[in-house]
Design a protein around this nucleic acid. Structure first.
Lengths: 194, 194
DNA sequence: ACGACCTATGCAATATTTTGCATAGCATCT
DNA sequence: AGATGCTATGCAAAATATTGCATAGGTCGT
């Protein structure tokens, strides 16, 4: 339901192709909504049938045409109405299997889990770097932004502070795991040459 | 896929009924995984068929029987194996429609959105209070905990620091929105007696 | 030259999640 | 006395999301 409106929101400023949208959902928008290209193409078809978006084709040499989508007036109206409706509040749900796996922490998986935490750390660093760059470039002083862009800023800012918090947590987690490993009885370790 | 293992994880310590599990998914566990009772009953059936959990019935006067589920040895094995497999890393995705709605911030919806933010603030305060109480009671000094409970602590700690970060963000958002409202031209406000 | 990866679109099958409904008795509030 | 809400279970349909496949030419590295 909301993906539909997320797509329309992305089309507020520019016309975009399905491919562009998929790119956007990988990047900035992806912090609070994830969508594969298959989902996006399906929704675009659906939105076209409803008359909420329309597209024009752009020919390209040697490549498939790009279908550039834009909001229609009806779409804009539907989006405005949706914003004021149906707030299905669901508090931050961090749906990452790794948390469940941490509940199962043991000698057998401690190294594996520490490795997975490290991988998340890397990925989050990269994303955070991207977000902070965007903020620096386009949202330097939030108070001077036009109203709508203040909202975009807030979403971005949420991504940034969640990202920082996440990194701090991962570091704490890795430290605790490292400390725990030292305390493990020798029997649980692999061959020790000492 | 992972819900199945989340349920088994919840059964590591105690036997539980579907109802108990639903309760647990509403509370602490719900931070990183949400599941309705319908989903849970379906999964329990599925897990029983696989032989990963089993149950005994407990009669109660005037009420439906409670089916108390516990892990089988096979279930324990499957869970251990899963922890070491298939890490489908997906970075923190904060799937809340409100972020999309913030992208659409305008004079017409600013009050509504501020109200919705406030509602989330209340709900998060409550959850945070619960988590902090749990931590104080059961996870006072993480370094002295047995290994598995260190993992549980880390998940809990993630919930707490995310919750705090979220509250700080909501406050920042509400302030920015309040400031923005003052700057709105009079034409956008309702009748002003001044 | 060959493989890997990027642009660009889309269908189909499966898996997961949500929503609506159904039953049933007890407790508590008004 | 009636309404609401809690315990306790579960089926079925609809909406969403994931995974696998398919096509097609371009670029870049080895």
């Amino acid at each position: 339901m909301a993906l539909r409106f997320a797509i329309m929101t992305a089309l507020l400023d520019d016309e975009m192709s399905g491919y562009d949208l998929a790119r956007a959902f990988d990047k900035s928008l992806g912090f609070f909504w994830h969508a594969s290209h298959q989902q996006i193409y399906r929704e675009l078809k659906n939105l076209s049938e409803r008359g909420w978006v329309a597209h024009r084709a752009e020919r390209q040499a040697g490549r498939p045409e790009r279908h550039l989508y834009h909001l229609t007036d009806a779409g804009r109206g539907a989006l405005d109405a949706w914003v004021l409706q149906d707030d299905r509040m669901r508090l931050q749900e961090s749906k990452d299997e790794l948390y469940i796996k941490l509940y199962n922490l043991s000698e057998h998986n401690i190294d594996y889990l520490a490795g997975r935490l490290l991988a998340r750390r890397e990925a989050m660093m990269e994303r955070l770097y991207l977000y902070e760059r965007i903020r620096r470039r386009h949202y330097g002083d939030p108070h001077t932004l036009p109203l709508r862009r203040k909202g975009v800023y807030l979403a971005l800012q949420s991504g940034i502070s969640q990202g920082r918090q996440y990194l701090a947590w991962v570091d704490e987690a890795l430290e605790l795991l490292a400390g725990a490993k030292e305390e493990l009885p020798a029997s649980a370790l692999s061959v020790d040459p000492a």
